[in-house]
């Protein structure tokens, strides 16, 4: 069992909120990936058991939605928006900067296990471009200095 009892309880609680428990699949996947860091086949089965639906329903939803990492990622998942508004404001070079500074390949994990950098589609932060999301937090109006500061803070936190 990879899911903690807290996660299972939270999933069950979510399932009870909806008129139909199947609706809890997305909330449950959110709970699961936040605990584990990413999603994988056996976890779908656990999630399915916790809600009381079939693994097929869970897995087919999970793989459709791209927000949930399907592979192990660093402790901090940095998602750089490279869509139009951010792109106009230099998102590509922001990403390049991050990759170089953290010495990782896109999607890979930095040596210290802390960071993974990926590019994503528009995150709804267009007026404050360029931006990136680190785990759940948005960082906006990024400049080189700001990025350095954020990375330092995160490294310090470990």
């Amino acid at each position: 069992m990879a899911l903690s009892t807290e996660s299972i309880d939270a999933i069950k609680e979510a399932a009870a909120r909806y008129p139909h428990k199947k609706s809890a699949i997305l909330p449950a996947l959110t709970i699961a990936y936040r605990q584990i860091g990413y999603l994988y086949d056996d976890l779908y089965i656990e999630v399915a058991d916790a809600i009381g639906v079939s693994p097929n329903e869970v897995a087919s939803a999970a793989t459709f939605y791209t927000m949930f990492p399907k592979q192990k990622v660093g402790k901090y998942l940095i998602q750089v928006c490279t869509n139009i508004s951010c792109g106009l404001m230099g998102a590509e070079s922001l990403k390049e900067y991050l990759l170089k500074k953290l010495n990782v390949k896109e999607g890979g994990i930095s040596e210290d296990g802390l960071f993974t950098v990926v590019s994503v589609e528009c995150l709804g932060s267009c007026t404050t471009a360029p931006m990136m999301q680190v785990n759940q937090t948005y960082y906006e109006n990024l400049t080189k200095e700001k990025v350095d500061e954020i990375l330092n803070d995160l490294r310090e936190k470990g």
Binding site: I25, L26, L29, V53, A61, Y65, T66, M67, F68, E121
Partner: peptide, 20 residues
């Protein structure tokens, strides 16, 4: 869970039902 199409109302409803 990260899907632009879920802004479209019928896809949103499917998503809310726990489906792709």
């Amino acid at each position: 869970g990260g899907a632009y199409i879920c802004g479209e109302e019928t896809a949103l409803l499917n998503s809310l039902e726990g489906k792709p």
